[in-house]
Simulated assay, not measured.
Amino acid sequence: MKNIYCIGELLIDFVAENQGSDLSRATEFTKKAGGAPANVACAIAKLGGSSLFVGCVGADPFGQFLEDTLKKARVDIRHLQRTETFTTLAFVSLAEDGERDFVFSRGADRELKYTTEIKKGFKGNMVHLGAATSLLGGPLESAYGHFFFDALTEGAFISFDPNFRLDLWKNKETSFIKKCIPYIEKSKLCKFSLEEALLLSGETAMEAACKSLHEMGTEVIVITLGGEGTYLSTGNRQKVIPSISVNPVDTTGAGDAFIGCLLHQIAQQGHFLQLEKEFDLLSEMVYKANIAGALTTTQYGAIESLPDQEQINQAIQ
């Protein structure tokens, strides 16, 4: 089984549950551990996989809470960095259907520094780059690019999820697209929402978007479609893989649970260099990953809601 390095932000989600989508009117918030790459690392670990988190938190009580959360989830945190900058916060509103809106208060996550000691661990393993804040400048963006280059030179399996957040990129969408393209060109697997696929490709239809994104270089594309499932494309073959029906209360972390479950399954394969040629196998993996994502929406909070292998197996039956 391969090790999976998840690189990017670890932060506090302050969640306003069942108070509508207008954060200005919310009065009560619940503290949750969050950050897409950290969620993915926890999803992998909960399924029995080997995940290592690379990111930065503040030397404050919130940073300690986040460190303790990853330890409890059995994520390897040997590469977790700490800084005097305050831990990053995100304020999340939840509408009645579980859909979300975000406002970020950036802090320690941007202070991640590149270190050469991680490079040797990439060889023959997997690297997931899925940070919403990773391309916003500062030390984090520089470190992100260096780790990406190291993963390429070491022959790692690279997964990329742009995790577009309008609050972070409003009126800067062109810059976001430009910065994402090198990752799309070189990653083996890319996960997008439909909004992201259309934005990054410049197309208006999903099929055309996939064609354009494949032409950039990525070999396997998964586009999550909520309750409808996931559109899987390998260039030569495409298919919508269905999900299961659930009553969602909080969609936070659903995409992270999905990609975590998919990466965990890929890591169990003896090889992954020709994965794009095994469409039927990929379809089975995506179906299971859809279930992981769906189950995550049935409870509040991303990490607390991540399913284990037994829960996924029960849902399949």
Rank of each mutant, 00 (worst) to 15 (best):
I4V: 12
I7G: 07
I12R: 11
I12Q: 10
I12D: 05
F14Y: 15
V15D: 08
L23T: 14
L23G: 05
R25S: 15
A26V: 12
E28C: 08
K32P: 00
A33Y: 10
A36Y: 02
A38V: 10
A38R: 03
V40F: 05
A41G: 01
A45T: 11
L47H: 03
G49V: 04
S51M: 04
F53D: 05
G58A: 02
Q64R: 13
Q64T: 14
L66Y: 02
E67W: 08
T69G: 00
K71C: 06
K72Q: 14
D76F: 12
R78I: 04
H79Y: 11
Q81P: 13
R82L: 08
R82C: 01
T83D: 14
T85V: 15
F86M: 14
A90D: 07
D97S: 02
V103R: 15
G107E: 06
D109Q: 10
E111D: 09
E111A: 07
L112Q: 01
Y114K: 01
T115D: 05
E117Q: 11
K119W: 07
K119E: 03
G124T: 03
M126W: 06
L129E: 00
A131R: 04
A131L: 02
T133H: 06
S134Q: 02
L135Y: 01
L136S: 13
A143Q: 02
A143L: 02
F147Q: 01
F147M: 05
F148H: 07
F149C: 09
F157E: 05
I158K: 11
S159V: 02
R165K: 15
N171L: 06
S175H: 05
I177E: 07
P182E: 10
E185I: 12
S187H: 08
K188Y: 10
K188Q: 13
F192E: 12
L194E: 15
A197D: 11
A197T: 14
L198M: 06
L198S: 07
G202R: 12
E207T: 12
E215Y: 13
M216S: 07
M216D: 05
T218C: 03
E219P: 02
G226S: 10
E228A: 13
Y231S: 02
Q238D: 13
S243L: 06
I244G: 02
S245G: 07
T251A: 09
I259Y: 12
L263G: 09
H264F: 15
I266R: 03
Q269K: 15
Q269L: 15
G270T: 13
H271M: 09
L273A: 10
E276P: 00
L282H: 01
L282N: 12
G293T: 04
T296R: 01
A302C: 00
S305G: 04
Q311C: 00
I312A: 01
I312W: 06
Q314G: 08
